[in-house]
């Protein structure tokens, strides 16, 4: 049971990382990314391929950098365009990543996938202790990313990208470098998705292309919508409740014998879709709405000067 809870907790951490990244890209910067899974896959494969060569930490960092580079590049290509186009370009990116993973056998071992990825802290001995250490590591990673992103959201950078999301024309008239800020937001998001991929590879110790389907993207959107676009705290709640819900329904298989495994997973995915639609219609602000920030939050002494 405790092993099961650890598994859920690590999966929640992965979902939270992906969600935090999407929250920066879509929630704060207003840029739709339907290719989330592509960046996660790049991170996972880069980590799996590099960690035997350079060690786990440098491998993770390179994976994050590679994801950031790719998403920054993609953003440069397409971000000046209307959101409809960015959406399809990112979907296309996700599909191309999957094609490359499937077909470049010399690098990715194709459909067979890469096995025996060694996890950090595996030298700590017994299997269960190893899991706990890895869980703590995952939580630390989520914590760090959260602090980084929350800091960014409060910093001038965060204000600028929110302004661009709400009205790019006004922001550029005020002298904000719209394109550069958007590319940066997209690249930072990409880096964190890469880290999530690294976590995925380390935890499962086995990756293959079938793990990286557009469903990952759908979960991320669900988490962001449920948590509240633009709110990082809401996102953690959203990601947590969704993964708990999804993983919880896996139990149902043991109790319900009328439907088989495929049907259960189909039902779960259909519910995700229904959830996205219902939340958009009835609770667009999510669990925790985006914090409204006033002048006094930014300049604490502004009120004293104007009594």
């Amino acid at each position: 049971m405790s092993a099961y809870l650890t598994t859920i907790a690590i999966l929640v951490c992965e979902a939270a990382l992906i969600g935090l990244a999407l929250n920066l890209q879509w929630g704060l910067a207003g840029l739709v990314n339907f290719g989330v899974v592509g960046f996660v896959a790049v991170g996972a494969y880069a980590t799996a391929l590099l960690s035997p060569l350079v060690g786990w930490l440098p491998a993770m960092l390179i994976a994050a950098a590679l994801s950031a580079l790719l998403s920054g590049g993609l953003a440069l290509l397409s971000i000046r365009l209307e959101e409809n186009y960015l959406a399809i370009v990112t979907i296309g990116f996700g599909e191309v990543v999957r094609l490359v993973l499937l077909n470049e056998d010399w690098l990715t071992k194709g459909a067979l996938g890469i096995a025996d990825i060694s996890r950090p802290f595996s030298e700590l001995g017994v299997a269960s202790g190893n899991d706990i250490a890895f869980l703590l590591f995952s939580i630390a990673l989520v914590g760090l990313s959260f602090l980084l992103l929350e800091g960014l959201a409060r910093a001038p950078f965060g204000r600028a990208i929110r302004a661009i999301r709400d009205d790019p024309t006004v922001s550029s008239a005020l002298g904000k470098p719209v394109l550069a800020l958007r590319v940066r937001a997209f690249a930072i998001g990409g880096a964190i998705m890469g880290l999530a991929g690294a976590l995925h590879a380390f935890y499962l110790t086995y990756i293959d292309p079938s793990q990286f389907t557009p469903i990952v993207t759908a979960y991320a959107f669900m988490a962001v919508i449920a948590g509240g676009r633009g709110s990082n705290i809401g996102l953690l709640l959203g990601a947590g409740s969704i993964m708990a819900l999804l993983e919880g329904t896996r139990f149902l298989k043991d109790f319900i014998s009328i439907i088989d495994g495929t049907q259960l997973s189909a039902l779960r995915l259909a519910l995700i879709g229904v959830g996205i639609i219902l939340l958009l219609i009835f609770r667009p602000q999510g669990l925790v709405s985006e914090p409204k920030r006033f002048e006094r939050d930014v300049f604490p002494r502004a009120n004293e000067r104007t009594p």
Partner: peptide, 12 residues
């Protein structure tokens, strides 16, 4: 929002 909703419809 419509775009994301249509993705939800697609999933369903």
């Amino acid at each position: 929002v419509l775009l994301v909703a249509s993705m939800g419809v697609s999933l369903v």
